[in-house]
Design a protein around this nucleic acid. Sequence first.
DNA 1: CTCAAGAAACAATCATGTTTGTTTTTGATG
DNA 2: CATCAAAAACAAACATGATTGTTTCTTGAG
Lengths: 231, 231
Amino acid sequence: MALAAVRSGSPARQPRERGQGGQTQQSLKSAQTRARLIDATIRCIVKVGYANTTTPQVAAEAGLSRGAMLHHFENGSALIKAAIVELHEKRLRAFRRAADTENHDVDALVRAYWRQLQKPAFVAFHELALAARTHADLAKILQPLQVEYRERFNAQAVALFPEWQGDRERFDLAMALSQTMLEGMAINVLTGAMAESMVEPMLGLLEDQIRAMNPKLSKGGRAKSAKDQPD
Amino acid sequence: MALAAVRSGSPARQPRERGQGGQTQQSLKSAQTRARLIDATIRCIVKVGYANTTTPQVAAEAGLSRGAMLHHFENGSALIKAAIVELHEKRLRAFRRAADTENHDVDALVRAYWRQLQKPAFVAFHELALAARTHADLAKILQPLQVEYRERFNAQAVALFPEWQGDRERFDLAMALSQTMLEGMAINVLTGAMAESMVEPMLGLLEDQIRAMNPKLSKGGRAKSAKDQPD
DNA sequence: CTCAAGAAACAATCATGTTTGTTTTTGATG
DNA sequence: CATCAAAAACAAACATGATTGTTTCTTGAG
């Protein structure tokens, strides 16, 4: 797909009535088609990888002709950018959802984030993140989103663990630990560098470690050993 | 580069006098050129990513014409395969070297592996591993190497920590923890998902965790807190 | 009737594998 | 010892296939 510079400010032909307000049926259909294309792009990235995600691929996946697709996005790059934004918002939404519905204890949150990482959005994002290493244009788009993601992650966690804020340094460390370990596991499972049978014990280990780092929880929490995990 | 099936058993024109024994000057130069090409391939993967590593790229990087290159490797795929094998052996060599020269305490080994992950070989291997997710041919080559790597990793560690073998389950867990965390950190730093300032504290944290898991070391080892790391 | 949605055809670019040509090494022979 | 032919190293040109952006064309809604 290659993602080159896009003439800013002129998407192929954005309907003039923007936003969620009352639209004509045309602009509504247009929005639907745009969404369908963005979804198809993400599916393609997951299915064949970012590098092999071509415009014909995406068009086929969306059930449209390439011409129709370029009518909505004028450019392969524009499509990729839109997909990135959508992915980013997807991740943030999933965050908020998890924080709202789940139990707010360590185990539940670790498991919630782990489940999060099993979803296609993570695969797609990692594909993009790695491609950005050698693609300056991609990196320029992705970097601010990575920063925002990390900030939201931490902000969410701060809200969830108010009692932890006494030792902010240790808290940040625990957050980085969780992120690193879970994402590292996800990638290692993805690439076959780690056996899946290791996942459960590792999750337990991480939970123990987090509890051990928490100044408050370390007293009340059970000092679970790494081996009494249920199957 | 794309890596398709390669007619087995017929490299472009392997010199008939194989091995390291006495060769004619031609076959020696041939071996040199092959090595130069393999090196160029790895450099390309690191520089522009696996997806954008094309045959002209590699030839240019090696200072050869594409024709000359295809004389030695007949195929882009053959080159990739050779590069993979070379990378694998590089990683194993680095392993053995570290195990021979370094101090055999937890800190030294953690740092040694961390340094290992900063080298280009790791970047290249991760590029390949991720590409393999969507490339069946690549996966078929990489998978056995991944298995062997893990086995060597563990075997090396077993030899280094004989006192640990009482609780094999916990030992395996500690190994998986180290690998996951260090590789996860390396990738997260690579993709900008993690601030570099977090590296040092995280290394310390990992070392503490490993020590805490060791039945023997946990008594003798200093119960270092996560914050008394030197800068 | 006018404009947007959607489709199809087109030229340009690029990587790949193949084929053909040129130089250098090697070792065999007169 | 000089020479020559075969093979290998290296280079260049070619044809093919795929992707990209552009342009032209049809259809349906407002």
